[in-house]
Amino acid sequence: MNTTGIVSRMPLPGPLPSSMQLNEQGRLRHLLTIEGLPRALITEILDTAESFAAMNEQAVKKVPLLRGKTVVNLFFEASTRTRTTFELAAKRLSADVLNINISTSATVKGESLLDTLRNIEAMYVDMFVVRHEASGAAHFIARHVAPHIAVLNAGDGRHAHPTQALLDMFTIRRHKGDFTKLRVAIVGDILHSRVARSQIHALNILNTGEVRVIAPKSLLPACVETLGVHVFHDIREGLKDVDVVIMLRLQRERMEAGLLPSEHEFFQLYGLTEERLALATPDCIVMHPGPANRGVEIDSRVADGPHSVILEQVSYGIAVRMAVMGMIMGGASGGGANA
């Protein structure tokens, strides 16, 4: 029996470098953040996802790549949609899936995050898909889990949501091909968005022609331009000639925190309408990580209109997550679906 998972280890605090997500051969060991991933690796993930996307459209949607592996969806923050796509991805690779929802109130009761991890890893599992409200949680877990367990970040605080960014890149690539000629605008609450941060890194690694962010200052992080974006406060200027518009979800709490006066005014200034979309290129695509607040950040006519690829994003999400899981645990690459 493999007992490496329950050997007691003395954990020590210290730096949690993102470089730990790659092994000595430069292969994915964990997926924690997009930042620092080589372009070739992102391209390989997207290529692998292509083969799974084709498979997902077939009648039999299952391969035995991860048979005998156990994936644990460890969600410290509620999310049915994201968890479901991870669950489907794992099941289509024939892995066993365990869903564990831990409300933070349970951890407040005295069990530390490390205790929780120790208990679950003692069940001989192979991968943690982690969502947590604190930035850096996935790095922390990757550093302290048993060495044979891989960690897939499904969203940590405001920091990163790498699989969402990858599925967005997949969607853009399917529609637009070459990134170097594209203008991409991300609109809305950049400050609190882990999705936006991961998208910005991915777009820049893929050499996107221009990455723009469009938001009022109160929804932009400090020094946002150092992430490699051009900043616009006026949506009309920002949308001019863009090829891809990515709308972000606006949480109601932002009004309460005094960052915005009202949903109404936000829609007036930053909501994506058909009229504003006309400022973009004629074949511009409209994306949203979901769930969209219709009438707050996006008009229903745009969300359901001909430029929208929002539902495609959801289905590609499964293929991309299969690719990442397959590459980390099953050695899949390129023609992963045929393995």
Partner: peptide, 15 residues
């Protein structure tokens, strides 16, 4: 510190 590192890491900043 509210600055480029906190922005990159998604850590709430202290200006």
């Amino acid at each position: 510190h509210e600055g480029q590192v906190a922005s990159r890491l998604g850590l709430p900043g202290i200006p």
